[in-house]
Design a protein around this nucleic acid. Structure first.
Length: 486
DNA sequence: GCTGCCGGGGA
DNA sequence: TCCCCGGCAGC
């Protein structure tokens, strides 16, 4: 584990793990009770407190030994009023899966962090990068950047990294903003330009690029990782609304914080994403995955995340196990949300109208070894070119596909092709309405017309008659295959 | 003939 | 609502 960003705001119980290649473990070890005024310098990132609100940045650099050493001791930098040691809890879970020396989880699942899941229903934005290769790359890049840019002896906090936090913020109803603000703050605070302005201009290009890659990946994980919200649990005050996009993040941040902060955020994000025209969005589409199980409105931003959710929550399977018998039916739908509309809708909720727009989210690379059925409409290109989404996206604002249409409550949610639009179900209005998506009646099926025969191999061919139990439900019922859609 | 899947019907 | 299957149509 080479990098780990943990931002914690303990006053409202909102904790955000951002971008760490092992955010789960990071969260486990950092998400300790820190509800005391604490300032800690842990690596290059100090912990700042501001009244009852605590933002904690923890960046671990280097080997695990170094991490442990830093974590178990306090390195006060003089900012701590009480000089309290921030205890870093390190609890063991035997079922944690590491890939070895890298310390990268093979699977970063919310269920790997029972504490998080249990204590922070809806308040935790779990982020992971599911591609081990990308993780390694990310880790290497970050390590390189750290070595080249930030000598350990120069890890000093600078005033520019101090971000004022409003003291009197209502925990209720603002958790979403705080989560989003936290994500942006984390990215901001990890910017070498912000942290080390004196050395930023002399950063070698490779290192600079590495930084950007790291930050980009980190930031992308904060926007397209396994963060989730549960719309069915909106009664919980701390339950955040969906962090819908970078734009949204910024909008909330801008509206909830001072103008000075807004400017910093804007500038830093310019740097991080090399966006020459920072106020212009390149991509406004985001793919969401919505659980279609009964009474569950879980929405995740990755197919793997929603599958993990279904597997663990609905199928009752052990999330720690990679075991998959291939018979899992993931009842979820894919939703392409137009972030322009989304931002418009959400901006109306904020006291000020945002004037800036951030760069498009960078989606994590899709899993390379997941079955086709578990990777719907990923097109394999999201991770590399976010703009491809908008390029390939139709004019529709909401595109929903479902992996399985043969579960009772969602029978009406049939696979729709591009251009079709789905009438939102009663339990999906949360997402759809917020996006102000243009909803049109579902495409009428003309009687007598038959769906063109699919080109893809279906379950029958893939598994054969002898493995009929591995077929998707639709194929078993001689319905249109939902696993190998065309 | 094989295959996908629509439409209908039984439990 | 779940599940099965006859039968049609594409290949």
């Amino acid at each position: 584990m080479d990098s780990r960003y943990i931002l914690e705001k303990s006053s409202v119980g909102t904790r955000v793990g951002v971008g760490g290649v092992d955010s789960c473990r990071a969260g486990r070890s950092v998400l300790h009770d820190t509800r005391v005024p604490t300032v800690e310098k842990n690596g290059p990132m100090p912990v700042y407190t501001h009244g009852p609100v605590l933002y904690k940045f923890v960046v671990d650099v280097g080997s695990a030994a170094e991490v442990n050493g830093e974590r178990t001791s306090s390195k006060g930098n003089g900012l701590s009023p009480g000089g309290q040691i921030l205890h870093m809890e390190k609890t063991g879970r035997g079922d944690q899966k590491d890939t070895g020396s890298t310390g990268i989880l093979k699977r970063a699942s919310p269920t790997h962090c029972p504490v998080i899941k249990g204590q922070l229903q809806g308040g935790f934005m779990h982020l992971d990068i599911n591609n081990p290769g990308k993780q390694a790359e990310l880790a290497n890049s970050f390590r390189a950047a750290q070595v080249q840019n930030v000598p350990p002896t120069e890890r000093q906090p600078l005033p520019s990294s101090h971000i004022p936090v409003p003291r009197n913020r209502k925990p209720s109803g603002h958790a979403d903003k705080e989560v989003m603000a936290a994500a942006v703050l984390t990215s901001l605070s990890t910017s070498p330009l912000v942290l080390y302005p004196s050395s930023a201009s002399t950063v070698p290009e490779p290192a600079n690029r590495a930084w950007k890659e790291v930050l980009s990946a980190s930031y992308s994980s904060s926007t397209s990782g396994n963060w989730s919200w549960d719309a069915s649990d909106q009664s919980v005050p701390s339950t955040p609304s969906p962090p819908l996009s970078n734009d949204t993040n910024k909008n909330f941040l801008l509206s909830s914080q001072g103008d000075d902060v807004s400017e910093d955020v804007t500038e830093s994000t310019h740097f991080m994403f090399e966006d020459p025209i920072p106020r212009k969005r390149k991509n406004s589409m985001k793919v969401m995955f919505k659980c279609l199980w009964k009474n569950c409105e879980k929405v995740l931003s990755t197919s793997s995340g929603i599958q993990r959710h279904i597997r663990t929550v609905h199928l009752g399977r052990n999330s720690d196990s990679d075991y998959s018998d291939g018979e899992e039916d993931f009842y979820y739908s894919e939703i392409e949300v137009n972030m322009d509309s989304l931002t418009e809708g959400l901006s109306s909720l904020t006291p000020t109208s945002p004037t800036t727009a951030g760069p498009p989210p960078v989606f994590p690379p899709p899993l390379t070894d997941v079955p086709h059925s578990e990777h719907i409409n990923m097109n394999g290109s999201q991770s590399h070119a976010p703009t491809l989404l908008s390029q390939s996206a139709p004019s529709t604002l909401c595109h929903i596909r479902t992996d399985h249409a043969y579960q009772g409550p969602v029978t009406h949610v049939r696979t729709v092709s591009i251009g079709e639009k789905r009438q939102p179900a009663a339990n999906t209005h949360t997402t759809v309405n917020k996006t102000h998506a243009l909803i049109t009646p579902p495409a009428k099926s003309i009687p007598g017309t038959r769906k063109p025969r699919g080109e893809a191999k279906k379950c029958r061919k893939v598994y054969g008659m002898e493995k009929r139990d591995m077929w998707c439900t639709a194929c078993r019922w001689k319905k249109a295959c939902q696993r190998f859609t065309d």
